[in-house]
Amino acid sequence: MTSSRWSDLDRPPLNAAALRRAVVTADSLWTALDVVQATGSTNSDLAARAAAGAAEGAVLVAEEQTAGRGRLDRRWTAPARSGLFFSVLLRPGEPAPAAASRGAADPVDPAGPVREPVPVHRWGWLPLLAGVATATALSRAAGVDTALKWPNDLLVTVDGEERKAGGILAERTGAAGVVIGIGINVSLRAAELPVPTAASLALAGAQGTDRDPLLRAVLRSLADWYDAWRAADGDPAASRLQQTYAAGCATLGRQVRAELPGGRELAGTAVAVDGDGRLVIAGPDGERPVGAGDVVHLRPSR
């Protein structure tokens, strides 16, 4: 039998036209939304579109990724239509229309005030922002308590154990843009898990696994958080991003071991996420911040 988009009735295809109508509106951050059946990596594809001049707010969704990447080029694979695999293009390095909110009653006026570019040193908050936006959206839309593992994992609880159900990868594209890739296991079954520590929303008891409303919820939340962050000139405290991330971060308060390049390790208690988005670890020699780019693995201390 030939496989088709409809061969697994528990995993229907996304409705691209309906998603586009709901998401790409005159007053929205999102300017384009495309769904492809399969690709190697939505991040790579969207980065190529960005280099060709794609506008901020482009969204690329794949029903299946054959070469999905996580941090440090780790592979991310899952069966077709078992999750949400998408990337968004943001251009924090360009001026943008100022808007306190985005809604039908308060459309963005292209001739109105313009926000200045966000300072580059604050762009490191974008993957953490995406984590906050995704976790809060899934908690509401799927009814699954979703926590964050610094710097880029989405955690759910299955049988009393925290497991990874998603991840985030942010990559610079050009001088002004960032592509953020988000992967979420939605309907992955136990027999399909790539590793025992993985999970899905379904395994965590989600109220529903219809991917269309889940994607809309995540994109709405991401637009709201990005608007607030840009309105605060990228300041994580003024936009309440830093406080919200800390409140939802399962890493804080735990004993951790950061494996650093060159075989070095830093062990201690994760006590804070600082103003630059770095994890602060308190050890025998005092507190030390580590950035995501400096950590090969972050593991619980035994």
Rank of each mutant, 00 (worst) to 15 (best):
W30G: 10
T209L: 01
R75K: 12
A282M: 05
Q255E: 14
R91D: 03
W225F: 03
G103E: 01
A50I: 08
S221G: 15
I168R: 02
T269S: 09
L298H: 07
A78W: 12
G57R: 05
L252M: 07
G275T: 12
A58P: 00
T134N: 02
G286F: 09
G208T: 15
A99Y: 04
D73V: 01
L193F: 06
D8V: 15
G40S: 05
A98Q: 14
A232T: 09
Q243A: 15
E94T: 15
S7G: 11
P213W: 07
G166V: 05
Q255K: 14
L241R: 11
V88S: 04
L9W: 11
R216W: 01
S7L: 03
V114P: 00
S3V: 14
R102M: 07
D224M: 06
Q65E: 12
V24H: 10
P92D: 04
L126G: 08
L126C: 10
A206H: 12
A18M: 03
V178S: 09
A22L: 08
R49Y: 03
R122D: 02
R257H: 03
Y245H: 15
V178G: 09
G275A: 14
R230E: 02
G70S: 08
T66I: 06
A228S: 14
V290M: 00
R216Q: 14
P92E: 04
D294P: 03
A50W: 11
L241M: 12
V118F: 01
A99Q: 06
A199T: 13
S187R: 12
A142D: 05
A272N: 11
A96P: 00
A170M: 07
P107E: 05
P97R: 07
V256L: 02
A17R: 14
M1K: 07
A78P: 01
E64T: 13
L154S: 08
V195L: 09
R254G: 13
L60G: 09
A247I: 02
H121V: 11
S3L: 13
G183C: 04
W30P: 12
D153F: 11
G143D: 10
A96N: 00
H297W: 11
V295Q: 07
D27I: 00
A54E: 08
V118W: 00
A206E: 06
I281V: 15
A58K: 01
N15C: 10
I180K: 12
Q65Y: 04
A99R: 05
A202D: 13
A22F: 00
A228P: 01
E287L: 06
A80K: 12
A100I: 04
L46M: 13
T157C: 10
A50C: 11
R278M: 02
L155P: 02
R299H: 08
A26E: 15
G253E: 02
T173E: 10
P196M: 06
A67R: 14
P284C: 01
L89R: 13
P127M: 10
I182M: 10
S301P: 00
A190T: 09
G68Q: 08
V256I: 15
T66S: 14
D109K: 08
P95M: 06
R299E: 10
A206G: 09
